Simulated assay, not measured.
Amino acid sequence: MFIVLFFLTSCSSDDNGVMETPYKQTEFLMGTVVTVKIYNEEKETVLKKVFERMEVLASQIGLEEDAGVSQIDEVNAQAGIEPVIVSEEIFQLIKAGKDYSQKAEGSFDITIGPLTSLWHIGYDDARKPDQEEIDAVLPLIDYRKVILDEEKHTVYLKEKDMRIDLGAIAKGFIADQVNKVLEENDVTTAIIDLGGNIYVEGTNPSGKEWTVGIQDPFSTRGETVGKIEASNQSIVTSGVYERYLEVDGERYHHLLDPKAGYPFDNEIAGVTIVSKKSIDGDALSTLIFSKGLEDGMAFIEKQDGVEAIFVDKDNKIFLTSGLEDEFELTNESFIIGDSSLKNEGSE
Rank of each mutant, 00 (worst) to 15 (best):
G17S: 10
E41Y: 12
T9C: 14
F28Q: 12
E65Y: 15
G62D: 04
T32K: 13
Q25H: 03
V56M: 12
V36F: 02
V36K: 08
L47H: 04
S13V: 08
N40P: 00
K43M: 00
L63A: 13
T21R: 07
S13W: 00
V36R: 09
Y39D: 05
E65S: 15
K24S: 09
F51R: 14
L8A: 14
F6D: 00
N40G: 03
F28D: 11
S13M: 04
V34M: 06
E42C: 01
K49D: 11
E27G: 00
T26R: 13
G62Q: 03
F6V: 03
V4H: 10
D15A: 10
T21A: 03
L57Q: 01
V50I: 11
V46Q: 05
K48P: 05
V4E: 07
Q60N: 13
I61N: 08
E65A: 15
D15L: 14
L5P: 02
E20S: 15
E55C: 09
T21G: 02
E20N: 15
K43F: 00
K48Y: 06
E44D: 08
M30G: 05
Q60I: 09
Q25K: 11
K37R: 11
T26V: 10
Y23R: 07
R53D: 11
L63S: 12
Q60F: 04
E20Q: 09
Y23H: 12
P22W: 01
Q25M: 04
F28L: 09
S10H: 06
S13H: 08
K43R: 11
P22K: 12
E42A: 05
V36E: 01
P22E: 04
C11P: 07
P22V: 06
K37I: 00
N16P: 05
T9D: 07
F7S: 11
E27S: 05
A58C: 05
Y23L: 03
R53M: 14
K37P: 01
V56Y: 11
T35M: 01
E64C: 15
V33H: 06
K24F: 02
Y23C: 05
D14W: 03
T32V: 04
G31H: 05
K49Q: 10
D66G: 11
E55Y: 14
D15R: 10
L8C: 13
L5Q: 14
C11G: 12
L8I: 13
T9Y: 10
S12R: 04
V36N: 03
E52T: 09
S13P: 12
V56T: 15
C11R: 13
K48I: 14
G17Y: 02
E65D: 13
M30C: 09
I3M: 07
K43E: 00
V46F: 02
F7E: 09
I3L: 07
I3A: 06
V18S: 06
E52P: 02
C11E: 09
I61D: 08
C11H: 13
D66V: 07
V56K: 13
G17E: 04
G31N: 02
V46G: 07
E52W: 06
Y39N: 08
S12W: 01
T26E: 12
T26M: 08
D66H: 09
E44I: 12
S13Q: 06
Q60G: 10
N40I: 00
